[in-house]
Computed example of a mutant assay.
Amino acid sequence: MPQFWRPVRTLLGLLLRRPLVGTCVIPILPDGRIVLIQRRDSGCWGLPGGLVDWGEDIATAAKRELLEETGLDLINVGRLIGVYSDPERDPRFHSACVALEAYVDGNFFIRDKAEVMRIEAFTVDAIPRGNLAHDHDQQLQDYFNGATVLA
């Protein structure tokens, strides 16, 4: 390889090998139930969320992802639950996820049918814990414990 390409290759590696930034939403309906989606890729239940688009802030990404995956409107962002960045948290790639509590309203409607199979609202006791997608069990446990974590 010519000497010229070595720094270019190094720079590209530095620019492209970075964790992606995303957000997860813990959507709380007016009656207190928590909304989960059933993911098409794994069949697991999980929190709505996704990657932050270029030029977008976390709150805007959370609102957009919630609407795309559930049809629900984000009325008010509650508290920060945590920032989750374990390289193994998502089996597809290394991502850092900002988890937020969100008060939501509206009617369920799947806009992203390639990603979401079902939407359901659960009481706290009925959430299918133990086999949620990614690290969503941990995020919900931190939420219920009232914690704000950096993990």
Rank of each mutant, 00 (worst) to 15 (best):
D53H: 10
D105A: 15
R9Y: 09
V8M: 02
P128S: 05
I81V: 15
L15H: 10
D73N: 09
V8P: 00
L11Q: 08
L132Q: 07
P91E: 12
L12E: 15
R64M: 07
Q139F: 02
L132G: 03
K63N: 09
C24G: 06
A133G: 07
I26D: 01
L11Y: 06
L66F: 03
R39V: 10
I81M: 00
Q3S: 08
P128Q: 08
R6M: 11
L51I: 13
L11R: 14
E69L: 04
I34A: 00
I127E: 00
G146L: 07
I81N: 03
Q38D: 06
I26W: 00
G106Q: 06
G82C: 11
C97W: 14
Q141S: 09
D57N: 12
R129A: 08
V52W: 05
A99M: 02
L67R: 10
C24F: 07
D125M: 00
P48I: 13
P30H: 13
D57H: 14
R18A: 14
I127P: 02
F4L: 08
R64E: 11
D125A: 08
V8S: 03
D31R: 01
V25W: 00
I81C: 02
H134T: 03
L47M: 12
V116A: 11
R129V: 08
P48F: 05
P91C: 11
L11G: 02
N145H: 06
A114P: 10
Y103I: 01
I110H: 05
L72P: 00
A96E: 08
L74K: 02
W45V: 03
F108A: 12
W54H: 15
